[in-house]
């Protein structure tokens, strides 16, 4: 009897797989081997994660560039921004699929070195977006110039402080995870500008611990602020948080301490756009945000790869820019495009 059933099992599986090949988006352009010359180029775009507004904007930008050049992109990314192993397998799998190029936003500076170098060994070009990776194999890095964006944040904070130096010009900074390359550069850009300014001191800067969630950030922000609260007053002149989770965590804690009757006069500058943070700007709780341009990052990332594939010269670093958002400009249409409120 079993000899009869086994072929049945197998043909079942086989039929399922065959029918899957008819799914939209995978069969059409690939299933025509005779027509190799007119076959669309394929670029894999591997994000740090696929389920938040920032990466959705990167996806939108990438699709726009792909449509303009009439190429196919395969958009994917790990379940969480800390899932390095999964992202590494995705790079390996795309290399083995035989894509023409990979646009990658590495989740970790060290962990993605091996997959990127393997891809280079198999002659699949890689363009890095968003954060760097510790190898010189990628053909180009397309990202926010984080050092100058951090400097921009420092200048925004200095402007918001004006001449007020009630607490000796002391400034505190909430840093993101140790080893996250993009935020480290940003934090360095920030502290460089502060250290060059007269009468300002960066009295404390703390990395958050844990997986990098907003909750982790809020816990670290709590401890950081408590160390500077004396006599029911926050004794600093300025506060900076270097990305979205740290900025939201800091904003929540500032709110909580204010509700507990603690006087907080120091202006707060954050980084990245998020509904909560933009509301903070409109409510006057955040003096300024420095916002990256994810749409442009996705667009320029894919465009740089297309240039590479067409044999054009590509720059080793492409800056996608950063914009200062304040209460004055937050509702302007050109800013709303960048903050994704459009």
């Amino acid at each position: 009897m079993s000899t009869l059933v086994k072929p049945f099992c197998m043909s079942g599986l086989f039929l399922l797989l065959i029918s899957l090949s008819l799914l939209p988006g995978c069969g059409k352009s690939d299933s025509d081997p005779q027509d190799a010359s007119s076959k669309k180029k394929q670029i894999a775009v591997i994000a740090k994660s696929t389920v938040n507004a920032y990466w959705k904007a990167v996806e939108q930008g990438a699709k726009k560039a792909a449509d303009e050049a009439d190429i196919q992109i395969i958009w994917t990314g790990p379940d969480a921004e800390t899932n390095h192993t999964q992202q590494a397998s995705m790079v390996d799998n795309m290399v083995n699929r035989g894509v023409d190029g990979i646009v990658l936003a590495p989740t970790n500076f060290e962990a993605l070195v091996r997959p990127v170098e393997s891809a280079a060994m198999r002659e699949v070009p890689i363009v890095i977006i968003d954060s760097p990776v510790n190898t010189d194999k990628p053909v180009s890095v397309v990202a926010t110039d984080n050092a100058s964006a951090g400097g921009e944040a420092a200048r925004a904070l200095i402007e918001a402080m004006g001449d007020k130096r009630t607490h000796g010009g002391n400034i505190i900074m909430l840093r993101f995870l140790e080893g996250s390359a993009s935020t480290e550069q940003r934090e360095k850009g920030f502290s460089d500008v502060i250290n060059e300014s007269d009468g300002l001191t960066l009295v404390e800067s703390t990395y958050i611990k844990g997986s990098g969630s907003t909750t982790d950030a809020a816990d670290t922000a709590d401890a950081l602020l408590r160390r500077h609260i004396k006599d029911n007053e926050l004794k600093v002149d300025g506060i900076f948080a270097s990305n979205q989770p740290t900025a939201i965590g800091m904003l929540r804690k500032l709110d909580q301490f204010r509700q507990q009757g603690i006087t907080i006069n120091a202006p707060f500058v954050g980084f990245d756009a998020h509904d909560v943070l933009l509301k903070g700007i409109r409510d006057g709780k955040i003096a300024a945000l420095v916002v990256q341009d994810p749409l442009n990052m996705g667009y320029l990332g894919v465009k740089t790869m297309i240039d590479q594939l067409n044999g054009k010269k590509v720059e080793p670093f492409v800056n996608t820019g950063a914009t200062r958002v304040t209460a004055e400009n937050v509702d302007k249409p050109e800013i709303k495009k960048i903050t994704l409120e459009d």
Binding site: K6, C9, M10, L13, F14, L16, L17, I18, L20, S21, C26, D30, S31, P33, Q42, N96, R97, G98
Partner: peptide, 21 residues
Amino acid sequence: AALAVIFIGFGFIVPDFAFFT
């Protein structure tokens, strides 16, 4: 055999038979 069926099945889905390298 089931493994082979799945492997071969994907071999036909992935373009240019790149799965069989």
